[in-house]
């Protein structure tokens, strides 16, 4: 990016300081990268990709029929009643934590934290990813921790059950834990932060994927565990 170091800035030209700021409109572009006009090179590839996608879609549509069950009937509840597959990770969490936590609080938090990802810098960029991870893992522990609270203060535990307090408490504790972890000098190195951030995000995506798969293929009546061949 640095025109001085790349040695490609023109010698007989003067450059302002703004030219060195990445993303600034006055930034001096690298002159050593080979550029190519998007028409027809990119446009042709887009058309090709679109054509291939359309062809694949047509073949799939001829081979597999979209499901259509019997007419909707409010008095006949199917067991289990499943949400669309992309919401099955939430429905799976619904099995462990109260609906407010798994259906509203956690998804809202996931979206908001997801939006902040680009705005963290250095070691702090691990923060949102760790938060995503704990937000999807902690509701799975909610029931166990709630049982613990119930053993100590049954009245309080019962009265606040629908709010899913254990998840809140665990999120706060894990936030402190994450903060402590981030102070570790191990993360002084940006490259280590980078590697860990990628891995943690992949773990997060993996957990969501596994939850969706469990909800789709391994859950039967009363949301009991069922093997696909049963």
């Amino acid at each position: 990016m640095n025109p001085g170091s790349s040695g490609n800035a023109q010698k007989d030209k003067e450059y302002g300081l703004l030219g060195f700021i990445e993303g600034h409109p006055g930034n001096i572009p690298d002159t050593d990268v080979e550029r190519i006009s998007s028409y027809p090179h990119l446009v042709a590839r887009e058309f090709l990709a679109f054509g291939l996608m359309l062809a694949t879609l047509l073949v799939v549509s001829f081979l597999f029929d979209a499901p259509l069950e019997e007419l909707a009937n409010a008095s006949k509840t199917p067991n289990p009643a499943k949400a669309p597959w992309y919401f099955l990770s939430l429905q799976e969490m619904l099995h462990y934590a109260p609906p407010f936590i798994s259906g509203v609080f956690i998804p809202g938090l996931l979206v908001m934290v997801m939006c902040t990802i680009p705005y963290w810098r250095g070691r702090m960029s691990l923060m949102p990813i760790m938060f995503l991870l704990s937000a999807i893992l902690l509701p799975l522990l909610d029931g166990i921790v709630w049982a613990g609270i119930h053993a100590v203060a049954p009245g309080f535990a019962d009265a606040t059950r629908s709010l899913g307090f254990p998840t809140f408490i665990m999120l706060i504790i894990s936030a402190f834990g994450i903060g402590k972890l981030l102070l570790n000098p191990y993360f002084d190195d940006e490259a280590r932060v980078e590697v860990l951030r990628k891995r943690l995000f992949l773990v997060f995506v993996g957990i969501v994927f596994v939850l969706v798969m469990i909800g789709q293929f391994f859950r039967g009546p009363e949301w009991r565990w069922v093997w696909p061949w049963q």
């Binding site: 259509l68 019997e70 007419l71 909707a72 949400a83 919401f87 609906p99 509203v104």
Partner: peptide, 25 residues
């Protein structure tokens, strides 16, 4: 929109979650 059992109950399950928000659910 197809108004079959799959549609009806998926939406029932989905909107029940929104109903669990404290106070305004």
């Amino acid at each position: 929109l197809p108004w079959d059992q799959l549609a009806f109950w998926a939406i029932t399950v989905g909107t029940n979650m929104a109903g669990s928000i404290p106070l305004i659910g």
